[in-house]
Design a protein around this nucleic acid. Structure first.
Ligand code: FES
Ligand code: FES
Lengths: 144, 144
DNA sequence: TATAATTCGGACAAAATTATCCTTTATTTT
DNA sequence: AAAATAAAGGATAATTTTGTCCGAATTATA
């Protein structure tokens, strides 16, 4: 569904949000540790998320990654997915034709679009805050 | 969503079904031509589909691939996806945790499972025949 | 029986994705 | 000012996926 990079990106962003709720700024090392991901690769992904304004970074000692409380509400999953995986999930055809195109649809088009629309709605309506709060109360996990 | 191999596999299977409806057996070359896919790679995928009984192959002159009319109804999209991509789509966690597990869910679990269940239902209820008939009447396309 | 057409299967190659390493830059603390 | 800390960025490596090539096996036809 999502690329590995995107999976790490979402987990990382949720972890940053969770810690920011506690007022803590977190390092790449801590993030990678807590979401069980390769450190250097995670660093690259955090750079992407920083460039696309999903999270905020601070260099130097006491530096790290953080996200403001208000941004946790405005940042939706769709932004993270778009920042890392691009818009394939939105414009791609389920059977791999150049683009999904209702004028010259593939045999799966109608059924595929129905599912994709739901997915899109879900991604666009799910905020980072929402995901972080489940973690906070210990209902959900970022690693196992 | 699906791997390239799986996309080719579905397109190929649908084309074989369409031609079998006309009583024609088709070669790898024709299939690859008609679904606009790399020939040799498509041949590998057709082998997988043959081994998993999705389609039937005949060697030698006048040989090729075909599928019986009754099998077009029993063969569902889910079988093709499973034959090529395995069960990742069913057991995988949306955020990349080892396995999707409701006992220790990731933050996206509930929302992800909802979408995945719909996808699963769609794949399990869509037959090859259904996909082939849209093509037959010129409503849908396997290449563009 | 020889030939040609076709799938099958293994080895190999290219491209994309995932992952690591190391140097540079910014910033805080001493 | 120097040292230490942390992200940024570039080069490179490993792995997976995608794709190619070619000989072997099978079978219809001449
Ligand atoms: S054309 Fe294939 S999904 Fe729309
Ligand atoms: S645990 Fe992540 S989707 Fe179920």
């Amino acid at each position: 569904m999502f690329s590995k990079a995107c999976e790490y990106g979402i987990r990382a962003a949720v972890y940053v949000a969770l810690q920011s709720l506690e007022g803590r700024r977190v390092s790449v090392n801590e993030i990678a540790e807590e979401i069980d991901s390769p450190v250097a690769f995670t660093a690259k992904i955090l750079q992407q998320l920083t460039r696309s304004k999903v999270i905020h970074s601070v260099k130097g000692p006491t530096g790290g990654f953080e996200i403001e409380r208000t941004d946790m509400d405005t940042v939706k999953l769709s932004m993270i997915v778009h920042a890392i995986d691009g818009d394939n999930i939105y414009v791609g055809c389920g059977l791999g034709l150049k683009e999904c195109n209702a004028k010259k649809p593939c045999p799966l088009h109608d059924k595929f679009v129905a599912i994709r629309t739901d997915l899109k709605k879900m991604l666009e309506s799910t905020s980072l805050y929402e995901l972080a709060t489940g973690l906070e109360v210990g209902l959900t996990y970022l690693k196992r």
